[in-house]
Design a protein around this nucleic acid. Sequence first.
RNA 1: CGGGUAGUAGCGCAGGGGCUAGCGCACUUGGUUCGGGACCAAGGGGUCGGAGGUUCAAAUCCUCUCUGCCCGACCA
Length: 588
Amino acid sequence: MRMSRLFSKTLREAPNGADSKGYEYLLRAGFIRQLGAGIFSLLPFGFNATKKIEQIIREEMNAIGGQEILMPLVNPADIWKETGRYYSIDKEMSRFSDRVGRDMVLAMTHEEAVTDLARGEIDSYKRLPLLVYQIQTKWRDDPRPRAGLIRVREFTMKDSYSFDVDQDGLDAQYAAHYKAYFRIFSRAGLPVIVVGADSGMMGGKISHEYMYLSSIGEDTIITCPACGYTANRQVAAFAKTSYTEEMKPVEKVLTPECKTIEELAAFLKIEERQTAKAVFMVGTFINDTNGEEEEKLIVGIVRGDLDVEENKLQNAARANALRPAHSEEILAKGMVPGYGSAIGCAKDVLVIVDDSVANSNNLVAGANEEGYHLLNTNFGRDYSGLVADIASAAAGYACPECGKPLSSSKGVEVGNIFQLNTRYSESMNCCYQDENGVRKPVIMGSYGIGVGRLLACLAENYSDENGLSLPISVAPMQVHLVSLVKDAEVGENLYKQLTSAGIEVLYDDRKESAGVKFADADLIGLPIRITLGNRSLKEGKVEVKLRRNLEDTFSFELASVVEETKALITRLEQELEEAVVETEWKKA
RNA sequence: CGGGUAGUAGCGCAGGGGCUAGCGCACUUGGUUCGGGACCAAGGGGUCGGAGGUUCAAAUCCUCUCUGCCCGACCA
């Protein structure tokens, strides 16, 4: 590619809103351009890098038996009605109707489409196991796209779907993905960790997320430095101390102006752990068959020294969505905000009690009366409810596995794997006949990688104060040939030699000053830079630099540039191959 | 969806009832320079996001609206 003919140009200043380094450089180097909120075009560099990432994904998916297919972005709503997600997913899914009024949707994922495909193809256990995948556009009308390519509305995703006769088969495919994902990310050069995750709208049980740890991330990851336990905070467990003692009688006390746990503990001169905190939410429950919504007040009770993890609460409540309750809604059920507890609340309130509360005695709880609290309340004796883990893990808490202190960090989810089991095959009647002629639902798994998000994370990880420096496996091209000599012939010849040897070359043939060319080369950050200048040409040499280390310059003989460049490319590629991480999944 | 903020040349910004709307970068032409974002000269480029209103006069004031960004809610 000649830079004089390149479609994109570099920007000296970052467009407004480019707040992270990676995003800024992707824009300035001409990889991407924004069209609307959460909607981006890929320019030649960005598209090239994307194709490289996709190729790595293809190779690894093929290696575990994946067959590439392509499913439509536009789906008839019928299949989404079959699984109920047409009703349970809110505005995040865009809907429209076609010319004759049929309900249509833009697919935000392809479980429905693939299950529809599978039920037509799979008839016998002899056909299983199967694995298909695609690299396809998804549309999710996120209420708040942000951070460049990290959180967008239209994006490219690799999604694969496994089909098996039983749990063992699913486990095997899950394990294969678990390992393949580590290979994919390490071949691309992105450091990731795997965390236990919530399965969210996907349904199913076991799932893991692949996280790139970075301050630009929106997920909070809880990890144990001592034993390696990791989980998304949404589901992270921790060891809770229980404080059991003999139950004492309930006593009502005046506690004016004590609306927070902190004030209450200070007023009563007790520790926060000796109190019970009530959090009021309204859960939406959706009937999958008719799509009717109903709301229900949920009270989450945790010990005063802990916080409620809303995601855990939502899962424990089996609610479709949660929102904070309004004061009137709480009062209507016999409870008083600021002085609230589940004691004496209306019967149709869903009470969910954290095990920390169930395992502690004589806690101070709200009296459901303005200005009063109750001493010595005990779960089971004074009120009842569903016991679950609804407390939020945080740094410093004890690891659930080894008891050592946990730590927390921010991460970007770049991939995930889910065991769907029969969530989709049952509702869509995707069945096979077993050896005995019995029809059974296919056991499914689904596995995603955000391609653009991966590029964004790579840009973030591989950049310095001068620009990008992507690894050779994903860089848009391999070599940046910078010509500083007036005589175009030397450059032209070298460009032809290199490209005809199969090397990907960006040739800066522009009439620009050396400073401009170097600055652009730094910004675009191709891994190998070959500079043609009078200084070295006199000695029959060209200068070579690696982008990742601009300090070091070495040289190639002009006569053997092609061979030496090839060898250098091979060396860089091998480095990445050698760093590939092989990690096995161990079923708990 | 709530709160904030901003829309003026391709990008970054200034101007804030009055005459021809500016600056830097980028772009065009000519010349000089030529190994880390060169210099001189001459140019081109704008329905000031949109609609309505106030006014003798609106980029500027008012109303509505659209769009981007940030925080929150939300998020496989």
